[in-house]
Amino acid sequence: MHVNKDRVVEVLGQLVSIPSVNPGFPGGTGEEAVADYVSRFFMRLGLERIEQELERGRRNVIGILPGPAGSGTLLLEAHMDTVQTEGMTIDPFGAAIRNGRLYGRGACDTKASLAAMLAAVETLVLRGIVPPVAVHLAAVVDEEIRYKGVSAIADEIKGGRLRYDAAIVGEPTQLDLIVAHKGCVRFHIDAEGEACHSSTPHLGANAIEGMMGAIAYLQREAELHYAPAAHPLVGPPTHCVSMIQGGVAPNTVPGSCRITIDRRTVPGEEPMEVWGQLKERVESLEPSVSGVRYVVREPFLIDYAMEVALDEPIVDCLRHSRDARAPGRRTIGATYGSDASKLVRVGVPAVVFGPGNLEQAHTKDEWVDLDEVATASDILLQTIMTFKKTPGPLNVS
């Protein structure tokens, strides 16, 4: 059984033509128009749906494809939001097709995954096929910034109002299976000094120069501790000094300086523990400039690393379905994060999978290969038809 490729392409084109830039980015429209499209899609198929309004104009839409009583439930999840369109060299919402590719913002990340999921479910409904397991297809908001969409679903799972035996999270993986990925903790470090006139620098404490000591310490931390903590699938932890702010005028010794740290965690590391250890060490450093002190601020974003066992039923089932249609693809880890970690955190085994190359995500001419999108839809269809309920209760931590 196959999904009609022309139909997959049609759905993808319709999704890409609808702006859904995350409102946290410049020109952000929000996801409401795509949520309307998905809701109408399920209504036309006669499927019940759950709509979770998280804030005005932003809601998750979950379509429900029933299975036999007691069959368990498989979650398909993909986000509706995209990044900004500034700097693009193509019409971001034109959904132009050239040389087997569809172009537009979100084509790769991750409306291709959403289209593949929608077309797979539609195929089953239109053919009158009841799958051996119930399927919930969730189109969610806010993956690109704060994960509000999947977090709302995770809260429902934790509260016992939703239950899933497994999940497939759509992201551009080139049909590889991602069974582990990194998390992150982002926070600021402030160097607090004393401002004065730049003609008498000895009367002040230069916070920018003082910050050099904290940066040097972080470099030593990486050299000493990251490699031994490497994970076999995702590699070692990393950090990046991603922003720096300081100074008020060319003729003033800066009294403050701030750096932003993006610390990537590996499975087994807890973000708050990582942050707490760094806070203790950095704030106890002897600053490189007398009169400067370091203050490590509370994290402004936390996400979790995740890992699922290779013998999880969803991993085995999806891998077999994939290998039958796209042999030679891999089962690997990733250095980025996804919605999957929030589901794993509440006891749902989740695999990241979808069409598209991550290198095309967020680019000035974002595109996705249409053959790959159609293949992904076929793989999802086969997975739905062969997945079996996980025996016993799930362990929710």
Rank of each mutant, 00 (worst) to 15 (best):
L224P: 06
S198A: 15
E307G: 07
I189F: 01
G210V: 03
M272D: 14
G193V: 04
W275H: 05
Y304S: 06
V274I: 13
E221A: 08
R263S: 06
V274L: 10
G204M: 00
A195D: 05
M306P: 07
M306N: 12
S242I: 13
A230V: 02
A227T: 09
V234E: 00
L218I: 06
T260L: 14
V253W: 04
E223M: 14
E283Y: 01
W275M: 03
E269Y: 10
H197N: 07
P299A: 04
R263L: 04
E209W: 11
G246L: 01
R281P: 07
E192T: 11
E192K: 14
S256P: 05
L224A: 13
A195R: 09
E298A: 06
H231A: 11
P313E: 03
T238G: 06
V266K: 01
D303V: 07
E194A: 11
M306L: 11
V296A: 02
R297F: 09
V266M: 03
E270W: 08
A227E: 15
G291E: 04
M243V: 14
I189Y: 01
L301A: 13
E298T: 09
R281Y: 10
R263I: 04
V296D: 01
V296G: 03
A305Q: 05
P228N: 09
A229M: 14
H231F: 10
A205Q: 03
L301D: 09
V308W: 00
L310D: 07
L310R: 14
I189C: 03
C257H: 11
G247N: 13
I215E: 01
A249F: 08
C240H: 14
Q245R: 15
A207C: 11
A229K: 15
V234Q: 04
V296W: 02
E283V: 05
P236R: 05
R293K: 15
E223I: 09
S256M: 11
G235P: 02
E312S: 08
M272N: 13
S290C: 10
M272I: 08
M243I: 13
R297Q: 15
M306C: 11
G291C: 00
H225C: 08
W275T: 03
H231P: 06
M243A: 13
V234C: 09
F300W: 14
C240A: 13
